[in-house]
Design a protein around this nucleic acid. Structure first.
Lengths: 210, 210
DNA sequence: TCAAATCCTGACCGTATGGTCAGCTAAGAG
DNA sequence: CTCTTAGCTGACCATACGGTCAGGATTTGA
């Protein structure tokens, strides 16, 4: 099972290594936190010499910043499906589906994001104050419209958003706790479906949409 | 405003300094994570020489373990009110109140707890597998009883507990994000009441209890 | 073919960290 | 008053960390 060993183009090398490093970094930052992560460990996970990391990313902060920004992108785009919906059942239902899927597929990213926010958002504070603020007020307005149209109960839109974030991300951030309470095994397909279903049912009923 | 300078008894000195160190440690661990926290910084916050910390706590791990265990105690006792309730409206309502109050009064503790679990619970894994597991199955049974008695909808008790933990702890762990979205100011009394009320209403309606 | 640009890395450096320890001070017991 | 014990701390140490750099290897474009 050897590689074809075709000589790689410059662009390919760069992109391939940057991706490799970013993936390793996401994992290590998630497991150890920013302070606990070491460039040496990230290098080992990536299978590269430490000095090579510094060739692509000047400092540990730079590397971390890239990881966090990548996650932020995924986070934001999860709500695309919400915007085209006619009402909360479709819209919020789709958003829950999307965010639960992120928690399942990118648990490390979710943890890095949580850690960053918990520690006062030292590197993405500006994004919180601009992009996230706009994003939030836009979605809050959408929810308010649904309320005005009688499609759901008159809940506080911000606190509904917090509940959506909290509940869905919990399955990634506290995945270890859930796994322990699940007999030490990760949730299987069926259990993930049950989780999604529970969250959707409780929240949609909680906001009077079903 | 000087201290009376009464000579302290031995016991008082020990207790006072341990408390002082634990408080400082909780704050620093919450802000920087285990790896990012330094004994020097904890010492500075506590107003003691670093060597004095090592007189009371042999290693950084020992100090951290104490902090996490203290939080775990608070966490567990929050549900005492739930047990004596006749139904979900009182019981879960009281639990939400208690956990929201913890999020408000001990945000640092909540963050340290979240961080510990996120990183795979390196120091309290045994507690998760014993105390927490028993606690959870006990409360799940209580919820199931309420369901059987027709006092609430037939939701999955475990996922309800996850939702309760996630939603309430979010106000501590992601407090910085909420603060940013709140115009950079922490929630005031009125806003905390609104938050509590939103959470309670949405969840109690979500489980068909109101 | 060859020079420039890019990629790569072992060896190295200054610093900060967790932890130690000898020796001091002060409280308490008798 | 005196001896014992607990409390305290400046100075120190070994290690591990983030980051640097000189110089070699490889690709690219002319």
């Amino acid at each position: 099972m050897t590689e074809p060993a075709r000589p790689l183009r410059r662009n390919e090398i760069r992109q391939q290594n940057e991706t490799l490093i970013l993936q390793a970094a996401e994992k290590v930052f998630a497991e150890a936190g920013f302070g606990g992560a070491t460039m040496q460990l990230i290098a080992d996970v990536a299978g590269l010499p430490k000095a090579n990391l510094h060739y692509y990313f000047a400092t540990k902060e730079d590397l971390y910043r890239q990881v966090v920004q990548n996650i932020f992108e995924i986070w934001l785009h999860a709500a695309d499906s919400m915007d085209q919906a006619d009402g909360p059942v479709e819209g919020i239902g789709a958003y829950i589906d999307a965010k639960m899927e992120i928690s399942r597929r990118h648990p490390d990213g979710s943890k890095v994001w949580a850690s960053e926010v918990m520690h006062g958002a030292p590197v993405i504070q500006d994004y919180l104050e601009t992009t996230l603020r706009e994003w939030t007020s836009g979605r809050a307005a959408l929810i308010q419209r649904w309320i005005d149209e009688g499609k759901m109960a008159a809940v506080n839109p911000e606190h509904l958003l917090y509940m959506l974030w909290a509940t869905t991300q919990h399955y990634a951030d506290f995945g270890h706790q859930i796994e322990t309470l699940n007999g030490g095994k990760p949730l299987n397909d069926k259990q993930w479906r049950a989780a999604k279903d529970s969250v959707k049912t409780m929240i949609l009923r909680g906001i009077g949409a079903i």
